[in-house]
Computed example of a mutant assay.
Amino acid sequence: MTKTGSARRLAAAGLIGAAYLALCAAFPALSFGQIQVRFAEVFTLLPLFTPAGIWGVTIGCALSNIYGLALGTNIIGIWDIFLGTGATFVAAVLTYKFRDIQFRGLPILSALMPVLLNALVVGGELTMVMSPTFDLRIFWLNFGSVGLGEFIACFVIGLPLYRYLQSSGLAFRVFSNID
């Protein structure tokens, strides 16, 4: 890889991370907690276009979780910086790996990765904070709540955005010079 390619990939990851953090900072009440629609999670679909999206959303998620902790809105606390960010990283990698598996031109399996992993991990984190003896009923409520918010970000907003970026040619113009 050339120095120019590395610099472009690093710059793209930084811009994605900054945009992720900006959206979480703009909507802190919706970005943290039991009922959340973290609009920044729409960026978890960017690995469909570039591997730089993997690092961008991971960095953005880590910074957002630190920001939420400092602000006092991240009720999970320091664990979310590691576990929540880890879930986002794994989801981004799987989103990238499954990008070529499509149904009617949409990467449904890729979009499902952030929904399932965040519902599982963040739902589990929330349950540990809310229930000293890990109540499975509370876990399923948290799993469903976080999963629904992720579904809104990835399917209701993300997939139409993906289709638009593809059909308009904007995805090619924006992401073709990164890798």
Rank of each mutant, 00 (worst) to 15 (best):
Y164G: 02
I76F: 02
T127K: 03
L10M: 11
F27H: 06
N118V: 10
L71K: 11
G33M: 12
I35E: 02
Q166H: 07
F143V: 11
L10N: 03
G33Q: 11
Q36R: 03
T95L: 05
A70F: 00
V42K: 04
G56M: 01
S31N: 02
I35T: 09
L10A: 15
V42F: 05
G17A: 05
F172C: 00
N177V: 06
A153T: 07
S145C: 13
A111W: 06
S64W: 06
L120P: 03
F82G: 13
V146R: 09
L109M: 15
A40W: 01
L15I: 15
L63G: 10
P28F: 13
E150F: 10
F39G: 01
D179H: 15
W79R: 10
L15W: 06
F175R: 04
P47E: 13
T50A: 12
S176R: 14
A70C: 11
G56P: 11
I78C: 05
F151T: 15
R163H: 09
Q102M: 14
W55P: 01
D135M: 03
R99T: 08
G60R: 09
L15F: 14
A153Y: 05
L159K: 05
L23T: 07
G86L: 12
L116H: 11
D80K: 01
K97D: 05
R137I: 08
I108D: 05
I66E: 00
V122A: 08
Y67T: 01
G5H: 13
G56N: 12
A29V: 11
F143K: 11
G144W: 14
G17W: 01
L117R: 08
R38S: 08
R173C: 09
P107L: 03
L165S: 02
R173F: 10
P47N: 13
D179C: 06
W140P: 15
A29N: 04
V121T: 02
V115G: 07
A111F: 07
F103Y: 14
Y96E: 00
L46W: 03
I101C: 10
G5C: 02
